[in-house]
Computed example of a mutant assay.
Amino acid sequence: MAEWSFARIDEAAALACLVNDAYRATGPVKGWTSEAHLLGGQRIDSNMLREILGRDDSRILQAHLADVLCGCIHLKRASRTEVDLGLFAIRPDLQGLGLGRSVVEHAECWAVTYWDARHAEITVIDLRQDLVAWYRRMGYDFTGERRAFPYGDERFGIPKRSDLTLAVMRKALPGHTPS
């Protein structure tokens, strides 16, 4: 069973390693969620994480197994009733065991309980069909909104393709009906 905590600023380096390993397959195990075939470079760095962790409207939930950081997700209060979820990462050698579902559900429950969130939104590179299908199984649906990929900002990666687009997906959170 996972132990939960919110990341502290002094944990930014460990979080950066986890996220970059999950997104860019930097370690020995290549997880199914890697986007290394689409992007090179880093996904995030310690300075970017310290900035996120310094905001009042932002939390990074961490999952630990036996005192080892194994997953995380960023919660950002987007409005009075909406939370944006991002930086969702699971250690590649632990993917496929249900930990990802647990991390997302724990984040959603926390957002409902403490921020009275009624909806959660995520953005995903729409070419990542396996991940899109997983989010759909988690109850997220396309909103029809597309956002531009941040080409030219290598802090988020070096694109290997010119057709990257971010699709917005949304979910009514438990206890709230869709609106």
Rank of each mutant, 00 (worst) to 15 (best):
R77L: 08
D57M: 06
K30E: 15
S46K: 02
A13L: 06
S102I: 11
E108N: 02
V83I: 13
E154G: 10
R50W: 08
T113D: 12
P174D: 14
I52A: 06
Q42C: 06
V168Y: 00
K76G: 05
G100I: 10
T26A: 15
G54N: 05
R43I: 06
D45N: 14
S79K: 06
C109F: 09
Q62H: 02
A13E: 15
G41F: 00
R170W: 07
I125M: 04
I122H: 01
H106G: 07
R136S: 10
L85D: 01
L15C: 15
A63Y: 00
V83H: 04
P150T: 13
C70V: 15
E105L: 08
G144C: 09
A36S: 14
E82Q: 12
R155C: 11
E35S: 12
R91E: 11
A25L: 07
D116E: 12
R155S: 15
E51S: 08
A22P: 11
V112R: 00
C17W: 04
L15G: 15
R170Y: 08
A107Y: 02
R55Y: 01
L87I: 03
A120L: 07
Q42S: 11
V104M: 15
D153N: 12
A167G: 08
G31Q: 04
R161T: 10
L65N: 02
M169C: 10
G31W: 01
E82I: 11
A36H: 13
V19N: 04
P178L: 10
A7Q: 09
M1N: 13
H176I: 09
W32R: 15
G144E: 02
L53G: 08
K160W: 09
K76S: 11
R50E: 14
G175K: 05
R147G: 09
L53M: 09
A107K: 02
L53N: 05
L85C: 07
A111E: 02
A25V: 14
E105A: 11
P28F: 09
S34E: 06
S179C: 14
Y114E: 13
A120H: 03
F149D: 04
W110R: 03
P159N: 03
V168R: 00
M169Q: 08
Y140M: 03
T143Q: 02
W110Y: 09
T33N: 04
P150I: 10
E108G: 03
V112S: 00
I125D: 01
L85W: 00
L164G: 03
T143V: 10
A14R: 10
I122A: 04
C109M: 01
D45F: 00
A7T: 11
V68C: 01
Q129E: 13
G175Q: 12
I52Q: 08
